[in-house]
């Protein structure tokens, strides 16, 4: 199963994305992602889905996001 982590500009948008993804059957959690953002503290969503699917979902629902976090994946 692909896991995708995406940094989010705010905890509000992270929770919004999580809830919408959950509604669509994705398992998604919000986590703090300090040290992974160029700008400092941020939250991220971790989703059980392929990156391209997750990004397409966020684009479709016009939810602003940061970047894919390849090095922030849970071990």
């Amino acid at each position: 199963m692909n896991m995708t982590a995406v940094s989010m500009p705010s905890v509000t948008l992270a929770i919004k994305a999580k809830r919408m993804l959950n509604e669509q059957g994705f398992k998604c959690t919000v986590k703090r992602a300090a040290n992974v953002s160029e700008n400092g503290c941020t939250h991220m969503i971790v989703v059980n889905g392929a990156p391209e699917i997750v990004i397409a979902f966020l684009d479709k629902y016009n939810i602003a996001y940061g970047k894919l976090l390849g090095d922030a994946m849970p071990q």
Binding site: P9, S10, V11, S37, E38, N39, G40, C41, T42
Partner: peptide, 8 residues
Amino acid sequence: GTGSSSLN
């Protein structure tokens, strides 16, 4: 403080 983008 907003809890986000804190380096900036």
